[in-house]
Design a protein around this nucleic acid. Structure first.
Lengths: 350, 350
DNA sequence: CTGAAAGCGCTTACAG
DNA sequence: CTGAAAGCGCTTACAG
């Protein structure tokens, strides 16, 4: 039943040429007379020949495969990032070896796996790595690029949003909207993204002369449920609410809105303003109409792949992409709702 | 800079053994004296040796890699499915080569790619294939398993939810809740999933003596935005609403609720009942509290991997998994809200 | 238990 | 332009 696979040698025999010529017929750019090429293609077609790229990977020492390691699949933002990478990689004709890593866990195991496969590059999203494993990659000349995260010790190329700048911008915006007391809900304590957004937010407040005492800090673990619990513990039925809540990502901002509206019967933005960060398509929908900061996923993905192409794994590079304020309805009064561009989805409409 | 990779030969030299013994030291189950094994492991460690699985794939004719082809990343359900597969595959020590396919497009190109890579199996989710490509897989002994879809022509193993039964069940439930006029919104016109749910729904109505005339059928393309547009066209501010809406998936049910509540100012369920299918975690949240049918993703994924292990690619097998009614707040009166189990997330809380 | 050798299916200098 | 041959880094009969 499971017959031996058809190889280039079988095709060669049928076409009456050498095996090397068959290989050339399937190698773009190889020199081969049109006559031979045609004869070979015909024989290959008749035999349903499909070249074995495992074998070609072995000789060329390139697999045409990129590893995608994603550390926070609970945050829809990284799902959109994953979709964008998968689409972009496919468009480039590259394969994607996808790994997910439990939050908090290190991606060392995944990377060791990936190293066996001799991938052409590694993209690391919202996940941790040890410097030990980073140097294993460097020794092998396999570029590893950080997406929206940096690692203080290691000197890796990174593409990230200006998280600090975004946090600062949002502080200014909320102050302009009249807020003077705040809650800030943070995400992954190990993640530089959450930390930088929080730092930027505090910096923005400080510049306006508002003390850190005006801020209640909460931990939401970057998930909807984590944030819902944090808000439930922090704000009961009779508690006074802050003027504004800044969630370091949209999914936690959505949890804030749900807590206030559906469990406490408060109004957003009249009783409490809420703002997020990411510009998820989900946050743009009618139950939320969330004011947020846009992370340009498409642009960040393109920058990442461009860095990968340069593959100077030695030189550290940083591509900082700015975020942009998106005014919707959960913070009052600064921009007409109609003027707000919808988020640009990764590939199609969500 | 990029030095030659360390191979088993280097390790052999350092340990003073043959290259074959090094290979055995890294092959579970191979016979090798403990003394040698230890000496080899030590040398390997010192050299940072990582076995090349491209080479081993070539000799063993197994890559330990499964292709995941997913055709509808706009529907969050399939994102949850993808996450579940990635987690399960990793737990089994297998790699996942992930492809997305644009809705409506065929996965033939992706499968041809994958065939070059000599994957150990292909899982096809919400995507089309041609019978031509199916037979290419069969010829090569590569099992291909359909997840939540079947292909009338081809005789492929499939794991799917009892979509017909679920649609029928929901018809009965809505009738029991008092509904007599209905809107039904369908998804991908090419997808058997959407079709079967709709058929089951009509069957359930017919059994209760309700004519198909009591149903307004809409096309939502399985997306939030597609469904929102369909409802916007079908129901304006002054239009009478049906007693109940059955959306063939949750994401379209969420669009229905948003349209009615936020754009038309109607109440759900008082003015119109809404039910979905999938039991998305998103639909369980406070703004929706959606009544729906649960698809047991974890179980379906486990069944799929079990089928893959059998890899009798000739025999067609069908694993039908039942769905279960989840009563929440968008259909009144049949079960206490507190008694409803939350959806079981793929890996952790969403 | 261990080693020498053949082989997996390609690519790519090297000749001609 | 084309072919014969070596080689990529493993695994696995086959001897000993």
């Amino acid at each position: 039943m499971r017959r031996r696979a058809i190889t280039s040698r079988d095709v060669a025999e049928r076409a009456g040429v050498s095996q090397a010529s068959v290989s050339r017929a399937f190698t773009p750019g190889a020199t081969l007379s049109p006559a031979l090429r045609e004869r070979i293609k015909k024989a290959a077609e008749e035999l349903d020949y499909i070249p074995n790229s495992i074998a070609s990977s072995l000789t060329r020492a390139r697999t045409n495969t990129i590893a995608l390691i994603i550390g926070d699949t609970d945050n829809p933002f990284y799902i959109h990032v994953l979709r964008a990478f998968l689409a972009a990689l496919q468009a480039r004709g590259q394969q994607a070896l996808t790994f997910t890593v439990a939050p908090g866990a290190t991606s060392d195991d995944a990377i060791r796996q990936v190293l066996r496969f001799r991938v052409d590059g590694i993209i690391l999203t919202a996940a941790q790595v040890s410097t030990r494993v980073v140097s294993l990659c460097e020794d092998r000349g396999i570029p590893i690029i950080l997406f929206n995260r940096y690692i203080p010790g290691a000197d890796l190329p990174v593409v990230r949003c200006d998280n600090f700048g975004g946090g600062r911008l949002m502080a200014q915006a909320l102050i302009a909207a009249g807020a003077r007391s705040f809650a800030l809900i943070k995400g992954d304590p190990m993640g530089t993204t959450s930390q930088d957004r929080a730092k930027g937010f505090f910096a923005g407040l400080a510049e306006a002369g508002l003390a850190a005492a005006a801020v209640t800090a909460l931990e939401g673990g970057s998930t909807y449920n984590g944030a819902l619990e944090a808000f439930s513990r922090a704000y009961g039925a009779d508690d006074a609410l802050p003027d504004a809540v800044f969630a370091v990502n949209d999914i936690m901002a959505m949890a804030a809105i749900d807590r206030f509206r559906h469990q406490l019967g408060r109004r957003v933005p009249e009783d409490v303003m809420v703002a997020g960060f990411d510009n998820l398509p989900e946050g743009a929908r009618l139950p939320y109409r969330l004011t947020t900061l846009d992370q340009p996923v498409g642009k960040m993905v393109a920058e990442t792949l461009a860095l990968l192409d340069q593959r100077r794994s030695g030189e550290a590079t940083e591509r900082l992409v700015p975020s942009r304020l998106i005014w919707r309805d959960t913070v009052p009064g600064l921009a007409p709702a109609a003027a707000i561009p919808p988020p640009a989805p990764a590939r199609s409409q969500s």
